[in-house]
Amino acid sequence: MKKIFVSGLLILSALNVIGQAKSQIAFTAKISNRNSDTLVIKGANNFKQVIPINKKELFAANFEAPKGFYMFSDGVESSNLYLKPNSEVNLTMNAKEFDETIVYKGKGVNESNFLAQYALSNEKFLNEAFTKEATEFASLVETKKKSDLEKIEKGDYDPEFKTALKKSFEEFNQYAVQEYERASLMNKLNGKPSAEFDYENHKGGKTKLSDLKGKYVYIDLWATWCGPCRAEIPYLQKVEEKYHGKNIEFVSVSVDVVKDHDKWQKFVTDKQLGGIQLFSDKDWQSEFIKSYGVMSIPRFILIDPKGNVLNADAPRPSSQELQTKLDALLN
């Protein structure tokens, strides 16, 4: 989740272009271990530039775009860039080490290189700072803020870019504090008895968490309208298949509102979703959902055979970390 937010943070800025006049942009990208034969650049006002790979194994295009923030995606991961009038952007990267290998060369690319490094530093900061005590964490947040401000002021960057990034720094700091507090709450839940639920089962009747005692329980909190939730479904299905017959139950709890109940039923049926499919009693206001401080989905929870919380914010099915954890528990 952290990585998703760090990438998405500056997308908030990308919702606003800086200036309306369009200018010519020359863009090329050389991507090793690519995930797709198409690169997509998106921006404000429904801007979308689709760039197919050419015979030289390059993504190359000339297009018009106003100055501002943009996001490029290879269909699996994404990153931000900043386009200025008459920029000549040459991107190189290794898709297997996405953020770590992004390098921009050419004309007008200083801002884009800053964004790539900033996203990487944010992710590293979250991974390291969250292991610290509250006082040290607060100190690290202040130190990072000062360091980011110094870097943006000393660099040769577009004035409007500087203004937008300073706002982004504040957004990131606020997020970091909120996430730290949320993580602290989750850590307090680990090892404690889980809150109970008693939800409608797609196959009929109702299912309680206590019905599953004696087994590990991996819970997926999701909704039919949630794109990132749906993106995890194929990975979850593979995990379910791998651990079929093991001492674990996979439970998906929909937080769709009541008016979308039929939509949920149809979705589960049409997609042939496995595991135990449940519908929460009061969507986001369900006591079980609130007990875990859920503010966004998808969210995953791992509970032990005694009904105690093993991980209140467990790894996603798409993360190898989940299978490593389950292997240790079940094999």
Rank of each mutant, 00 (worst) to 15 (best):
150 E>A: 13
164 A>Y: 07
156 D>L: 14
161 F>G: 11
156 D>R: 12
159 P>D: 09
142 E>W: 01
167 K>S: 11
146 K>R: 13
150 E>P: 02
170 E>V: 14
175 Y>K: 08
168 S>K: 07
173 N>G: 00
146 K>D: 04
171 E>S: 06
155 G>W: 06
171 E>G: 02
172 F>K: 08
173 N>C: 03
151 K>F: 07
174 Q>L: 10
146 K>A: 14
140 L>W: 08
174 Q>H: 10
163 T>M: 03
152 I>P: 07
144 K>F: 01
175 Y>M: 08
165 L>Q: 15
157 Y>T: 11
152 I>K: 05
143 T>L: 00
166 K>C: 04
162 K>E: 08
153 E>F: 03
169 F>T: 10
166 K>M: 07
159 P>N: 05
153 E>V: 06
156 D>T: 14
140 L>C: 03
144 K>I: 01
151 K>T: 15
166 K>I: 09
153 E>K: 11
144 K>E: 00
164 A>G: 07
174 Q>I: 05
148 D>P: 02
165 L>N: 10
151 K>S: 15
168 S>R: 09
160 E>Q: 10
171 E>K: 03
140 L>K: 12
167 K>D: 12
157 Y>A: 10
166 K>Q: 13
143 T>M: 02
170 E>G: 02
149 L>P: 03
173 N>K: 06
145 K>N: 14
156 D>V: 14
167 K>A: 12
158 D>Q: 02
162 K>V: 12
163 T>E: 09
172 F>R: 13
146 K>W: 00
163 T>K: 09
159 P>G: 05
159 P>L: 04
153 E>W: 01
170 E>D: 15
151 K>D: 13
151 K>E: 15
173 N>S: 08
154 K>C: 02
169 F>I: 15
142 E>G: 01
145 K>H: 10
148 D>M: 07
169 F>P: 08
175 Y>C: 06
150 E>Y: 02
155 G>Q: 07
165 L>A: 09
143 T>I: 00
167 K>W: 04
160 E>A: 10
173 N>P: 00
154 K>V: 02
145 K>D: 09
152 I>V: 14
147 S>A: 15
147 S>Y: 07
174 Q>K: 14
152 I>W: 05
159 P>V: 05
161 F>H: 06
157 Y>F: 15
161 F>P: 10
170 E>N: 11
142 E>S: 11
175 Y>G: 04
145 K>T: 11
155 G>S: 13
143 T>W: 00
142 E>Q: 12
152 I>L: 09
145 K>M: 08
170 E>M: 05
148 D>T: 01
168 S>G: 07
141 V>S: 04
